[in-house]
Nucleic acid binder design. Structure first.
Lengths: 117, 117
DNA sequence: CCACTCGTACGATAAGCATCGTACTACGGG
DNA sequence: CCCGTAGTACGATGCTTATCGTACGAGTGG
């Protein structure tokens, strides 16, 4: 399974049952990655990597998105030259109910408290 | 503040407002530390470090408990030669409502699913 | 006072990870 | 066909972290 189909450019994603809590927490423990997840959750849309204006180079951006994908937090597909990202909300909610929401709420709360984005 | 009082053996704890979400998530992302937190939450009691039978040496145990303390997850005080640990549930719940509970639930769920402790 | 237990401190080591730069591939448009 | 844009691959680097061993300090009980 996992979309073995047409494009030569396939991306490896863990199946729902393969997603591990430690991996998810580790992925979310990085400020930049948490920011990306927050944005994806807020927009609830497909966003390209380049949409995010992160204070890091392209290589590092690739790295962080890979961590998120391999942890099972996001799903990535190629669309032309771009790569679009979506939150795997259904999978995460099924595995760990309320976890994502409470992390997002905590993050928003803290950003608010510290007066930042 | 923060118990500056009698014992020469004082332990540094972050104040409630100093607790950072990234630090909390990072602390919880380690399997052993998550196990400790789970146990503390389950017993809801003061447990000594040596109560936990972790598959690591004493030095490493000290290290992990320090990470938990400095992240603001637990409070530690000396009681005789032993050191007792308690979850900082009130502080965490005040800062990040539902976060701890959903992580604990997620952990229990995953342990259940994988057929482990 | 001595021995024992609990935990710390410190140094070493090895692994992991965030970061970068440069060179490269894939796709789409003039 | 050539160029620009989006992202990857790979290697290097330096920081953080998990781990250990050994030596030590602080209490408790004989």
């Amino acid at each position: 399974m996992t979309t073995a189909a047409p494009s030569p450019r396939a991306l490896v994603h863990p199946a729902r049952e393969e997603i591990r809590l430690e991996g998810v927490l580790h992925a979310l423990a990085d400020p930049l990655r948490l920011l990306v997840v927050r944005e994806l959750a807020r927009e609830d849309a497909e966003l390209t990597c380049s949409h995010f204006e992160l204070p890091i180079t392209k290589s590092t951006t690739t790295h962080h998105f890979r961590v998120l994908r391999e942890a099972g937090l996001i799903r990535q597909v190629y669309r032309g030259t771009a790569k679009v990202n979506v939150l795997r909300r259904a999978d995460l909610d099924a595995l760990f109910p309320d976890l994502l929401d409470s992390v997002l709420a905590a993050s928003a709360r803290q950003a608010d408290r510290l007066g930042q984005a």
